[in-house]
């Protein structure tokens, strides 16, 4: 079953920002990453999905229900953590969490204590007195206390120290194993790589690619770096599947996708002093998508 189904969602703000024609589906039980640089439209998509803003055109369903008409019904099962958390300053943490819990018709007090303990959060402090990181923790507890079926996180890790980030990711994985679907937006690739099953890459308001993290890494390119004794002629490697050739004196670098044997034959002809064949990390793959887009235009 698809938990989220977005169809041709467009949001125009005057001319500049916004999203256009975004379509994607998030399946039940998966951790879906939403990645792109700042201002690419991640937040816009998420905020539209949560009906904080309304789309110019297009539609979406969450849990099979129309996301605008049945918004209150849908939100019973959504936990949301915004990128910037600011809560009623003059409240105590526990009062805020109780207020948050009062919107859901279930008893959340055990869950609040449990989460607060895991996140090392002092419930009796005033929100005003908390550091940014601690406010973020309030946000996390607030987003998870009603054990939602769909967790939506908008750049959740900013402000958390690495140790807390670790705990937070563990929490998310546990929730996921219990059956929660997670939509996770980020501009930091390594965290998406760590957590997500599938990822959508968004750029300038458009989805460029939706791919499994594993395929994104596997099916793609090998990164070659060859060092030779003599200068190399670029033409030797004029083969299909080779990209981004760079020659720097005695070193040649390129990305390759396809059958490895012809390449090995070519390399065998050379008098090499050193050779590296590596998996490109996600960052490079990602940059590649972005560059490719630019060249296509």
């Amino acid at each position: 079953m698809n938990v989220i189904e977005i169809k041709n969602l467009t949001k125009k703000y005057g001319k500049a920002r916004g999203i256009s024609d975004v379509s994607l589906t998030v399946e039940e039980g998966e951790i879906f990453g939403f990645i792109g640089p700042n201002g690419a439209g991640k937040s816009t998509t998420i905020r539209t999905l949560l009906t904080l803003i309304y789309p110019t055109s297009g539609s979406a369903t969450v849990f099979g229900k129309d996301f605008i008409k049945e918004a209150p019904e849908i939100k019973k099962e959504i936990g949301y953590l915004p990128s910037e958390v600011f809560y009623y300053d003059n409240m105590k943490v526990i009062d805020l969490l109780k207020y948050s819990a009062s919107f859901y018709k279930k008893d959340c007090s055990n869950r609040i204590n449990e989460l607060a303990e895991r996140m090392d959060l002092d419930l009796n402090k005033k929100i005003d007195d908390l550091s940014f990181g601690n406010k973020k923790k309030v946000g996390i507890v607030q987003g998870l206390l009603h054990t939602p079926k769909l967790i939506i996180l908008d750049e959740p890790t900013s402000g958390l120290d690495p140790l807390m980030q670790q705990t937070f990711f563990e929490l998310l994985k546990e929730e996921n194993q219990k059956g929660a679907t997670i939509l996770f937006s980020s501009h930091i690739l390594s965290e998406v790589q760590r957590l997500c099953d599938r990822v959508a890459i968004i750029k300038e308001g458009k989805i460029i690619k939706v791919e499994k993290i594993s395929t994104l890494k596997e099916s793609n390119y090998k990164k070659f770096r060859i060092e030779t004794k003599s200068e190399i002629n670029k033409q030797i490697f004029a083969l299909d599947g080779i990209k981004d050739i760079e020659v720097d004196d005695h070193v040649i670098r390129f990305l390759f996708k396809g059958d490895l044997n012809p390449i090995m034959d070519k390399i065998a002809e050379l008098d090499i002093t050193n050779l590296w064949v590596e998996e490109p990390d996600l960052e490079e793959i990602f940059m590649h998508y972005y560059e490719k887009e630019d060249k296509d235009r």
């Binding site: 949560l50 904080l52 918004a71 209150p72 939100k75 600011f86 948050s100 919107f103 859901y104 607030q142």
Partner: peptide, 17 residues
Amino acid sequence: REKTADFLLTKPVTRQQ
């Protein structure tokens, strides 16, 4: 102003409420 709109509006309530 206090940036709490996100908190309230993502709860299971309508804006009318």
